[in-house]
Amino acid sequence: MSSGLYALKPWYADRLAGARRALAARGVTPSTVTAAGVGFGALAGLVLATVRSPLAATVLVAALLALRLAAANLDGALARETGTGTRWGAVVNELGDRGAELAALAGCFALAPPWLVLLAMLTASAPSWVALSGAAAGAARINGGPVGKTERCLLLIVLAAVPAHADVLLVVLAAGSALTAAVRLRALHRALAPARFRTGRTT
C-alpha cells in the first residue's frame, strides 16, 4: 500500500541520491543522519513555540521539516548504500522517526491546549504502530495514507503560517492520522485474515 504523498518517495529518493553518495563518501553513519532528523524536528518545534512572525515561522518550519523528511529518507538509504544496515539500526530508525515528529509537535504546546496537542501526538504515532504491528505479523510494511508523515509535516507548516487556527489544524491532523491508522488496519486485516498460523500466549 502506497498512497498520498508517500507515493512520491521514489522520486524524492532519486533527488537525494547526490546527498546520499556524499554522506557515504564522508563516512557519515546512518545513525548520525537519524539523530540529525530528530534535531531538525526539535528545531521546528522550537520555532513553532517561539517565533511570533508567521512569515518567518513558516519559512523556518518548512525548511526544517524538509530537512527532517530528507533525513528520514537518507538514513535507511545510506545504510543500504554502505552495507551497514542492521536490525538494531532499523529500531533506531523507527524511534528516530517518531521522536522527530513528536519533537516538532511539542512546539504546539505554546499554541493550543495541552490535551489537544497530546491527542495529536498520540494519533500521529498510530499509523506507524499499525504498520509495525503488521510487519511483525509477517505482512508487507504499509505506508502512506490520507494523512501520512509528509501530510502531517505540511499541516505543521500551515499551522506556522496561521497560528491562530492551531486548534483546528491539530484536530485535522489528529482526525486524519486516526483515519490513516484505520485505513492501514483495514488493509492489514484483508492481507492477514486468510492466513492460518499459530500464535503463542503472551503476557
Rank of each mutant, 00 (worst) to 15 (best):
L65P: 04
G99W: 12
P146G: 10
C108G: 12
A136E: 08
L102P: 15
A106R: 04
A136K: 12
H165S: 13
S53Y: 06
A44M: 10
P114K: 00
G144E: 07
E101W: 15
A120C: 13
G41I: 07
Y6A: 09
A70W: 03
A195H: 13
A100H: 01
L16K: 11
E81R: 15
G39C: 07
L43P: 06
S177H: 04
P127A: 09
V158L: 01
V183D: 09
L78S: 06
I157Y: 01
D97F: 04
S31A: 12
L111F: 07
A112Q: 07
L67P: 04
L67D: 10
L119A: 14
V147A: 08
L118I: 06
R152Q: 00
A104H: 08
A178P: 02
E151G: 01
G18T: 12
V47A: 05
A120I: 15
A66R: 07
L74Y: 03
C153N: 10
R201Y: 15
D75T: 15
L118V: 02
R68P: 12
G18D: 13
L55D: 15
G144F: 07
P127V: 02
A135T: 14
S133C: 02
L159D: 06
G39Q: 09
A191E: 03
A57Y: 03
A17K: 00
A112C: 03
T150D: 00
P113N: 06
G200H: 05
L60H: 00
S177Y: 04
A63T: 00
L23V: 04
G138M: 02
L105Q: 00
A62M: 03
V171L: 13
A66F: 04
L119D: 11
